[in-house]
Design a protein around this nucleic acid. Sequence first.
DNA 1: TCTGGGGTCCTAGGACCC
DNA 2: TCTGGGGTCCTAGGACCC
Length: 422
Amino acid sequence: MSPVFALVDCNNFYASCERVFNPKLEHKPVVVLSNNDGCVVARSNEAKALGIRMGVPEFQIRPLLKAHDVQVLSSNYALYGDMSQRVMETLEQFCPDLEPYSIDEAFLSLSGFTSRNLMEYGHTIRATVKRWTGIPVSVGIAETKVLAKIANRVAKRTPDMGGVFDLFACPDRDDLLGRIAVEDVWGIGPNHARFLIQHGITTALQLCQAGDQFIRMHMGIVGLRLVMELRGVSCLDLEQCPAPKQSITCSRAFGNSVTTLTDMDEAVSSYTARAAEKLRAEELAVTTMTVFLTTNEFKDTPQYSNAVTLKLPVATDSTHELIRAALQGIRQIYRDGYLYKKAGVMFTGLIPASQVQVDLFDDQNRARSKKLMTALDAVNTRFGSGTLQYASSGMAKTWRTQFHRRSPAYTTDWDALPVARA
DNA sequence: TCTGGGGTCCTAGGACCC
DNA sequence: TCTGGGGTCCTAGGACCC
């Protein structure tokens, strides 16, 4: 059975989520900002039409935002995560062979569906997701993932396609690939794009026709796979059972610069607590932790960044042990006299929590600690994250990430349920 | 004078993704 | 004044072992 992939991708996902619960945003330019209201991370079509680029700092386009009455929102990850789940559950109804690829897109395997009219099926999927979740999606269909990505792009950018494009039904594929810029191919980043253009390869078609040796030598095995996929040879399979996590990170830019070890301790404590929650949610324990901090690279002030990697004596998932280690780490790298902008912790060497090797001389009471963590997570899930927290995370939190224009958590907080008035 | 070969593990860095 | 966060995979090189 020759493979068939569909890529279903939500249109302007964060902006669309906001619109579902706030219809006043309909037909207006909308942008969603990153943490600390720093950069634009999502744009409605109207905002794109104004020339607002992805990733641009908000302060640089402030006059434009004002002039066009652009609706500006802080990001609301609780809302987007929940909406993502609804979209994925809807897709699953159509096709159990589903790989959620990111918060706003999923690959479907339609290999067993070739007797159907794939284009029509795509339209049914699209209409149902819209009806059930309110989120508009685009569907691209082809025989490899890389080509499905391209098909999806075509679906999105060609309004008369109605949001679905089936590459199998394309009469002149070379012509189509010839119109796709090489830097727009999935897997070609800025570095490889620059290199390829220097060598006269500027379109997906030219990349498709490049020599295997040349690609292997300059872009490695990953690049070669990508080119094979462009040629219609499927090398990237649908990954249905997600591989176990390799790492868990929590890092944030500070709302205000941190200049004291006390504040740094608080920030790193709370990031460690957050990362530990994620760790327990995955039922993992950590053996190695990296702590890092850095100054503001955009500022003309003295620069410093450093990181330290600590091996934990026993793999653990308990917040207080991890905080203790993190604070030790911070002491090794913190230097007075800098304006710190960001810090974080990364857990690597993750193992299933059930397989922790206990040290013979281990002095921790593991059973007690496990009960405490279970209770802590339960309270914070029920009453909101941060209801219970460690004293070392501090109270004032002048460094805390800022969200001045956040929408309510419409779907995950009873108090924020939208109210319909008759 | 003549200085093997192959394997594993770890780490750092680069490239990419959304 | 104001510039995000969280991941993956691959590769090269060094340490170490037999």
